[in-house]
């Protein structure tokens, strides 16, 4: 399975966790790491190229830092322009049909702060609903998110641990070892991989 990571980080030069997370990602054949802010600093997205990329892959990952409970602006622009009617959705828009979709998120707060009765008021699964529903509309198979929590206070060992999980996730996807049905049972893909690794 070929995996496309759409990475969106407007201030990557200030990032700590994501620098580690994406390091070496573009090294494998079956994983394409696509750095959107690097490719389109002027927001002038090449729609044809993006659609071409999408059709060449079987799994699409939105990888971004969780800013204001949402994704960075360029990723929204990407959705608006690339997911066109008749191509991505609608009765004749079947180009994404059956492909896997999930988000890989780095969030500042710890997992416990993302509950309905806690500091952030909602779970991340709830907060990414627009993305999941968009993927549904494009007839994609939506998976639980991959989340690195607590990046505001994270230590390097924890980052390295998450990096190993992310790498394993990508490897399983690439080598077709990933079990969709099983993964759907979990809240997030971190849990699924952790269980499989045990």
């Amino acid at each position: 399975m070929k995996v496309l990571i759409l990475f969106a980080h407007p201030a990557f030069h200030k990032s700590n966790v994501n620098k580690v997370m994406v390091d070496g990602l573009s090294a494998t054949d079956s994983v394409t790491f696509h750095d959107l802010y690097q490719a389109y600093p002027d927001f002038d997205i090449d729609i044809e190229r993006e659609q071409e990329l999408l059709s060449q892959h079987d799994c699409v990952i939105f990888h971004y830092p969780f800013f204001w409970y949402s994704n960075p602006a360029l990723l929204k622009e990407w959705q608006d322009l690339v997911l066109t009617h008749g191509w991505a959705f609608g009765s004749k828009g079947n180009m994404l049909k059956g492909k896997l979709f999930f988000t890989a998120i780095t969030a500042g707060g710890p997992k416990a702060s993302y509950t309905n009765d806690s500091f952030n008021g909602y779970t991340i699964q709830q907060l990414i609903a627009p993305l999941l529903q968009s993927a549904m509309l494009c007839k994609m198979i939506t998976l639980p998110p991959f989340i690195v929590y607590g990046t505001h206070a994270i230590e390097l060992p924890e980052v390295m641990k998450q990096k190993r999980i992310y790498s394993e996730l990508l490897r399983q996807l690439a080598e077709d070892e990933f079990e969709v049905e099983a993964a759907l049972e979990y809240e997030d893909l971190n849990d699924y991989i952790t269980h499989k690794m045990k």
Binding site: A11, K14, F67, G109, A112, T115, H152, A153
Partner: peptide, 27 residues
């Protein structure tokens, strides 16, 4: 996009209330 000051403020706060492996009962 600079999380420096955010970290400074919230890291302490999160540590105080969420720094356990079990989900917090912080409500």
């Amino acid at each position: 996009w600079d999380v420096g000051s955010v970290k400074e403020e919230y890291a302490k706060f999160f540590k105080a209330h969420f720094d356990t492996d079990t989900p917090s009962n912080f409500s």
